[in-house]
Each structure stands twice: as structure tokens, then as C-alpha cells.
Simulated scan of single mutants.
Amino acid sequence: MAGNGDRPKVGILALQGDVREHAEILRRLGVEPVEVRTAGELEGLAGVIVPGGESTTIGKMMVSSGLLDGIRSYFYRGGPVWGTCAGMVLAASATTGPRQPLLGVMNALVERNGFGRQVHSFEKDLEVEGFDGPFTGVFIRAPFYEDVGPGVEVLSEVDGRVVAARGENILVTAFHPELTDDTRFHEYFLKEVCGIERS
């Protein structure tokens, strides 16, 4: 699902969250970022990032804009999706907390704000499956997956809590790779999930 033109296009859900930070890293990696606010803007994208923010608010905005069904449809047609922080919550099939809109594309039970509130934000060096050396995770009101089902590969854990995982065409991280100078998770998404080979 390559984008038009010379460079592949990767969408960033632009309703809330770290849109600019993700866009800057994508540009550095030779990919054209596209801000997505309507379902029609998903057309022709090589992948979509659902960034952090407040998951309940983003979920409601996705419902009203048609993007909840739009991204779900994009995903089930084989479109690659990466959810960071709130995006990890939205990707889950179920939550331990109050009901909220979910994409339901990851076979997992999510604990929202699993590591505590804003004041409990922290950084931690993570061992990540397939990475050569630790990755510094920036956790801000971060969720975790309490349980994962078949078809979900766990990539990283903190004290037995799943903080990074992937399925066939989906990646989730409880932390914010876009807030570091380490581009390995963006590279992983582009190559391993989207199938984009850097020239």
C-alpha cells in the first residue's frame, strides 16, 4: 500500500497528541507524513499512526469524524496501524476501565493509565524483542496490556506488564518513541509492519 509520488505516505491521526513530533521523525526517515482528520484521507496511505493524547476524548472525536469506522476498515483491508499511548488503548479489544470507543483491532485487554497519573510519568530503558540494545521508553499516563490473546507478539514488558506488542499489521507502544531521538520504533513500523524499504 505505497503512497503516490516518490516517497511513501504515512498518516498521523491529527485530532490530538504528538502529531508534529511523529511527522518530524517520518520526514527524517524519508517518508511523507499526512495529517488525517477524515476517513477519506486514509486513501493511499502506506500506514497510519494513532498518537497519544486522552483516549476517551480521541475515541469520541473518531466516532464523530467517521475515523473510528474508517481506521477499522483500513486495518481490516490490510492497512498497517501503529498506536502509541492513547493509540494503544484505542487499538485494544477491551478495557478494564469505563466503556469508551475502541477500534478493537488488537486482541488485548488494556489498563488505561496503568502506571498512574501525569505525576507518575517516568523514563525506563526497555529490552525490546529484535532490538540491538535498550530503548528508552517515555511513559506519560501510560497504559499497559493486562492480557493478550492469540496472534499478539509481545515485544517488551515492564514488571510483567505488556508495553509493546504487534500483530500481523499492527504495532502498539505504551510509551512515546516520538519524544526521543531514537528512531528505531519508527523504522520498525515502516519496515516490519508497513513493508517500506528505505532507499
Rank of each mutant, 00 (worst) to 15 (best):
G3H: 01
N4P: 11
N4V: 12
D6W: 14
K9A: 12
K9T: 09
V10R: 03
G11E: 04
L13Q: 03
L15W: 03
Q16M: 06
G17W: 02
G17K: 08
D18R: 13
V19Y: 11
I25P: 08
R27W: 00
R27Q: 13
R28E: 11
R28H: 11
L29P: 09
L29K: 09
E32P: 06
E32K: 06
V36M: 05
V36D: 02
R37K: 15
E41I: 00
E41L: 03
L42R: 02
E43M: 06
G44I: 02
A46T: 03
A46N: 06
G47Q: 04
G47A: 06
I49Y: 00
I49M: 08
P51F: 02
P51A: 07
S55Q: 05
S55M: 01
T57H: 06
G59N: 01
K60Q: 10
M62T: 00
V63C: 01
G66I: 05
G66N: 07
L67Q: 02
L67C: 06
L68K: 13
G70C: 04
G70T: 02
G70W: 01
I71P: 09
I71W: 00
I71D: 04
R72I: 00
S73T: 11
S73G: 11
S73I: 01
S73A: 14
Y74M: 08
Y74E: 03
F75V: 04
Y76T: 09
Y76Q: 11
Y76R: 14
Y76S: 11
R77G: 03
W82P: 08
W82Y: 10
W82G: 08
W82H: 08
A86R: 01
G87A: 03
G87N: 03
V89D: 14
V89R: 07
A92L: 03
S93Q: 14
S93K: 15
A94E: 13
T96H: 07
T96G: 12
G97A: 14
G97Y: 00
G97H: 09
R99N: 09
L102R: 07
G104H: 10
L109G: 06
E111Y: 07
N113L: 05
N113A: 07
N113M: 06
G114D: 05
G114Q: 06
R117Q: 13
R117Y: 08
R117T: 09
Q118Y: 02
V119F: 14
H120K: 15
E123K: 15
D125S: 13
L126K: 14
E127Q: 15
E127S: 15
E129G: 01
G130N: 07
D132E: 15
P134H: 04
T136V: 13
G137H: 03
V138T: 09
F139V: 05
Y145M: 14
E146K: 15
D147G: 05
G151T: 10
V152F: 07
V158D: 10
G160N: 01
R161L: 08
V162T: 14
V162G: 12
V162P: 13
V163D: 12
A165T: 05
A165D: 10
G167S: 14
E168A: 11
E168I: 05
I170F: 14
L171V: 05
A174M: 04
F175A: 08
P177V: 04
E178F: 01
L179C: 10
R184W: 07
R184T: 09
H186D: 07
E187Q: 15
F189S: 10
K191I: 00
E192W: 00
V193Q: 11
R198P: 10
